[in-house]
Amino acid sequence: MNLKLRALTKSLWVFHAATSPCNNCDIEILDALTPRHDIERFGMVLAGSVRHADVLLVTGVPNYKTKERLKKLYSQAPKPCLVAAIGNCACGRIMFKDSYNSPCPVDEIVPVDVYISGCPPKPEAIIAGVVKLINKVTSSAKGT
């Protein structure tokens, strides 16, 4: 594993992009940062700008307005940028798939690395998902 990847997986900075969610997934992301779960002990920090972030946490079902913004956010993020789709809306649009204002799921806009389902996923599930993300990155690096 090269140094860059090693440093990346030791401290993932996350940025959460809310693409019209109901807020619950965002609250659970923030909840994972607060003392009960405290993912900051694993080096994960909520970054203020996407330009500083390693992971894009996407919540909600994108609509016509946030679809363009999400594309722009992904293009602004430094690569490699990992993307986690958090919540059932981001994973598969659930009950909003028939809505006139939901053009496509998240994974048709940006490449998604890990899907964390749940409505909303518990903070434990979010932590487990990020751990899987780290394992995926490190194992793929070993393979090459």
Binding site: P21, G60, V61, N63, K65, F96, D98, S99, S102
Partner: peptide
């Protein structure tokens, strides 16, 4: 307008 999902319309279905 970033959070509009068309819930009123979905509700009618």
């Amino acid at each position: 307008g970033y959070m509009h999902r068309g819930i009123e319309e979905l509700s009618e279905h």
